[in-house]
Design a protein around this nucleic acid. Structure first.
Lengths: 155, 155
DNA sequence: ATCGTCGTTTAGAAGATTCTGAACGAACTG
DNA sequence: CAGTTCGTTCAGAATCTTCTAAACGACGAT
């Protein structure tokens, strides 16, 4: 890994950290984005990133579940991974999905709040609607809008 | 605070935690959503939530900066706070703003990556575009779409 | 002026997260 | 079969975050 690649890897690590993921996940992802060849075994990743195999092993699982990377079918014993193209959209999707919890909390609030507290009820209803809006409206619509945007910005 | 209100407060605390904020911020926000009267002094908040004044003092600052709550002008020495209506949209706005860092990291990657690595360049460009899309397109558009959605769901 | 009350700041405790090395079982190699 | 290499798991270390109590300065009341 060149020093420039190392800097990229760390930058993506920091980025992932700001959106709530462990830094190592970002570093793995960053490296898989630029490495050559694009598929890497778990041991190779550990060596390249100077991180223990244990960390890679633990971190790569949520990455698979989140569909950021995929494991390649392989006859050998090694586990080879590569980025799934466009998988970074999951970063947002996951965040938006979490808004459901907000909607549920607000809904609960409405169910236990006295009828006469109209001002408070209005605020809770507003919060609930927004969380639903974020989780469903934006979420469902996201991929389509992204595809459009992407098509328009293609050169 | 009734037990039901306490549960709501804790639920919103958990929700906030899932979106990356300290739990106490969520609990403060939850309480300010339903309390009566809707404006509360820092000391009152500490008492109601059974949290030290120090915590409230530390946590309420980022809440003000994030425009979740506002401090009321007041002649007295107490600092009175209340929720700013619709301020929860900031929860998403902040998240989306953070995507800028991803765009910058990808841009950096493109600037240091060899020209012949077309596959990698494509992936980075894609990541950059998506981060920009999330930060600007969605971000700018969010309020308008929310206003529409809100208007349509008003009864 | 003294006292009580306000919010802030700071130092340290408590707790959660993240990382590593070592031990392990499974699978291939000679 | 013994030896090597693979990924996983577990216990503990290191680190970061979050919380509190205590000390503090500012302000107002008596």
């Amino acid at each position: 890994m060149t020093p420039e690649e190392a800097e990229l890897v760390d930058r993506i690590g920091l980025f992932m950290e700001t959106v709530g993921a462990p830094r190592t996940i970002g570093r793995i992802y960053g490296w898989l984005m630029v490495c050559d060849p694009p598929e890497q075994s778990l041991t190779e990743l550990a060596t390249a990133l100077r991180v223990s195999k244990a960390s890679i092993s633990t971190m790569i699982r949520p990455m698979q579940e989140g569909e950021l990377v995929e494991r390649l079918p392989s006859a050998s014993r090694e586990h080879y991974y590569r980025v799934v193209p466009g998988g970074f959209t999951q970063l947002l999707q996951v965040q938006l999905t979490r808004m459901h919890a907000g909607a549920e909390a607000a809904e609960f609030g409405l169910s236990v709040l006295g009828e006469q507290r109209t001002q408070q009820r209005e605020r809770l209803a507003d919060l609930r609607d927004f969380c639903r809006f974020a989780a469903t409206e934006i979420g469902d619509d996201l991929m389509r809008r992204w595809a459009d945007y992407r098509a328009n910005n293609k050169e």
